[in-house]
């Protein structure tokens, strides 16, 4: 029943924002637990298509848990439980008829620490298409090149595709992880503090890349770096102790926050 309401994009309860693009995710009353420890409390928000949505908040506030619900990778953690609704393009994400694996095909993820497979650069990018049997042989080669170009890495690695991915620098490894995620042609890319292990120059390159990628993809980025959220995102949500305190256009949230706690956080009084 939520589905029909949400698809019409006219919900009464959740803090909706005025935007013209249709929603990709509609989250309603989400609650999460690890064992008996509750980490997300009644979170509702809408993630618009082809925009960058940032989730900020102090460490331990549940922001990673929140985006990890969006590709159901939390399912793999023993003791994890969630309730509430997440609709992905109008369909319940935990609909038993949907294989979580196919969700991850549509919703890619990039992690906090670059985690390339200890294999060649080529094998890293080709892994996704191979397990989904998307492309073969020459077409796979082309596809790997295309993905690396999208991640702005092609020029740096085109002569050493056979080299072990661990020989790359940290920033290059993270862009390789982005290329790897893009190679299965997702619609959404979740980024869990993608720059926290990188230096400022590498961070700048990734942010540039994100702005480019939003032409074609919906991006959700978790960051504890408020400047980063302010620089790249269109919408921002502020999460505190598992509660979504405020959600809205980035500019508004940073200039005229509606909640005193948001204001305290963005002015650096805690966190």
């Amino acid at each position: 029943m939520y589905a029909s309401v949400l698809r019409n994009d006219s919900i009464s309860n959740p803090p909706s924002t005025a935007h013209d693009s249709p929603s990709v995710f509609a989250i309603q009353g989400l609650e999460c637990w690890y064992g008996t420890h509750q980490v997300i409390r009644k979170v509702s928000l809408i993630i618009p298509e082809r925009r960058i949505t940032a989730i900020i908040g102090p460490s331990g506030c549940g922001k990673s848990t929140l985006i990890r619900c969006l590709n159901r990778i939390n399912d793999l953690i023993p003791g994890f439980r969630m309730s509430g609704h997440i609709l992905f393009k109008g369909r319940e994400l935990d609909d038993p008829a949907i294989d979580p694996l196919t969700i991850r095909l549509k919703v890619g993820m990039v992690f906090q620490k670059p985690n390339p497979f200890p294999k060649s650069i080529y094998e890293n990018v080709a892994y996704g298409p191979r397990i989904w049997e998307l492309h073969r042989d020459r077409r796979l080669d082309d596809h790997v090149e295309k993905s690396l170009r999208k991640a702005a890495l092609w020029d740096e690695v085109k002569d050493k595709l056979g080299q072990n991915a661990l020989t790359l620098s940290g920033g290059q490894q993270q862009r390789l992880c982005i290329a790897r995620a893009l190679a299965v042609e997702p619609e959404v890319l979740l980024l869990d503090e993608p720059c926290s292990a990188l230096d400022p120059i590498a961070t700048g390159k990734i942010e540039e890349l994100l702005l480019e990628l939003k032409q074609r993809y919906t991006l959700v980025i978790v960051t504890h770096n408020m400047q980063q959220a302010a620089r790249v995102s269109d919408e921002t949500g502020f999460l505190l102790m598992g509660e979504l305190i405020e959600f809205g256009p980035t500019e508004k949230l940073f200039t005229t926050p509606g909640d005193s706690r948001t204001e305290a956080y963005i002015t650096g009084r805690f966190g």
Binding site: N71, I73, L76, L101, T102, I103, R104, L105, G108, M109, F111, N115, P116, F117, Y127, G128, I131, W132, C177, R180, A181, V184
Partner: peptide, 9 residues
């Protein structure tokens, strides 16, 4: 995690 995130079983 990297592998699961790509939809691998």
């Amino acid at each position: 995690e990297a592998s699961y995130a790509l939809g691998a079983s």
